[in-house]
Computed example of a mutant assay.
Amino acid sequence: MMKGVPNFLLVTALLSLTACFVSAYDPSPLQDFCVAIDDPKSSVFVNGKFCKNPKLANANDFFFSGLQIPRNTSNPVGSTVTPVNVAQIAGLNTLGISLARIDFGPYGLNPPHTHPRGSEILTVLEGSLYVGFVTSNPDNRLITKVLNKGDVFVFPIGLIHFQFNVGYGNAVALAGLSSQNPGVITIANAVFGSNPPINPDVLSKAFQVDKKVIDYLQKQFWWDNN
């Protein structure tokens, strides 16, 4: 009997340790930040959405129409993203998925960007796309591929990635994302088009270029294709 006690204690300790790991894990964020507040009366937003009474749910809460419609790509980057996330389908709340249609004009680009809260799986519906992502420090390795109709490519969560139309006509892709609200940070827009602007001295040293180059870039109009 006594010989079994240490084993029992060991199992109990392991289970307790596992429970600690599980309870200490935070859920994935669904927004850029959520400042903690003690007074619920002063709160204006939560991590996600408040839930509708399930008895009042209807088909329209889980429905979106019009994704088959081509979007206008006559903008400086030559592409337009049509998101379908929790903002468009309320029923996606807590399900951890969303998608987007991406339209590309000839030589259109979905500029280098990241999704801070979701991985992406992209399927080419029409045309040919040169796609890629960059691994994290210290390697910063570029992984690229030319995709044709029916091809699929994955972009891991948080990594900078892009899609560029290398065909002669229009291109269309459908992207699935592992978050109801994956977010998007377009690198050029965020670095050179922030509001208020980042101090030019900071960017000049970061990019190792003359301050005049930074001043020029910060004066450009950075197009948001989302």
Rank of each mutant, 00 (worst) to 15 (best):
1 M>N: 11
4 G>S: 04
5 V>G: 05
7 N>A: 08
8 F>M: 13
9 L>T: 12
9 L>I: 04
13 A>G: 08
13 A>C: 13
16 S>G: 13
16 S>P: 07
17 L>K: 11
18 T>E: 01
19 A>R: 14
20 C>F: 01
23 S>W: 07
24 A>K: 04
26 D>L: 05
26 D>T: 15
27 P>F: 05
27 P>T: 10
28 S>W: 01
28 S>G: 09
28 S>Q: 14
31 Q>I: 10
33 F>T: 04
34 C>D: 09
34 C>A: 13
35 V>F: 06
36 A>Q: 08
40 P>F: 10
41 K>Y: 14
45 F>Y: 03
45 F>R: 12
52 K>H: 12
52 K>D: 10
52 K>W: 08
54 P>I: 10
55 K>C: 05
55 K>Y: 01
56 L>Q: 14
59 A>H: 07
61 D>I: 02
62 F>D: 05
64 F>R: 08
64 F>M: 13
64 F>P: 06
66 G>L: 13
67 L>V: 10
76 P>A: 07
76 P>R: 10
78 G>C: 01
82 T>W: 00
82 T>C: 09
87 A>C: 03
87 A>M: 05
87 A>L: 05
88 Q>E: 04
89 I>P: 02
89 I>A: 03
94 T>M: 03
94 T>H: 03
94 T>N: 06
96 G>V: 06
101 R>K: 15
101 R>F: 08
103 D>Q: 13
106 P>W: 01
107 Y>K: 10
108 G>C: 03
111 P>E: 09
114 T>Q: 09
115 H>I: 13
115 H>Q: 05
115 H>R: 13
117 R>P: 06
117 R>S: 07
117 R>V: 08
120 E>F: 08
121 I>S: 10
122 L>R: 09
123 T>L: 14
131 V>R: 00
133 F>S: 00
135 T>S: 03
136 S>I: 05
138 P>H: 06
139 D>E: 15
140 N>K: 13
146 V>W: 03
147 L>D: 06
149 K>Q: 02
149 K>N: 01
149 K>P: 00
153 F>E: 00
154 V>M: 06
154 V>D: 00
155 F>N: 03
155 F>R: 03
156 P>W: 04
157 I>V: 11
158 G>K: 07
159 L>Y: 02
160 I>K: 00
162 F>I: 01
162 F>R: 04
166 V>K: 02
168 Y>G: 02
172 V>M: 11
172 V>F: 02
174 L>T: 08
175 A>G: 07
177 L>W: 04
178 S>H: 13
178 S>I: 10
181 N>Q: 10
182 P>Q: 11
183 G>A: 15
187 I>E: 04
193 G>E: 01
197 P>Y: 14
199 N>R: 09
203 L>K: 06
205 K>Y: 15
206 A>M: 07
207 F>Y: 12
211 K>H: 10
211 K>Q: 09
212 K>M: 01
213 V>Q: 14
216 Y>E: 15
217 L>C: 06
218 Q>A: 13
218 Q>W: 10
218 Q>C: 08
222 W>Q: 07
224 D>N: 15
225 N>G: 09
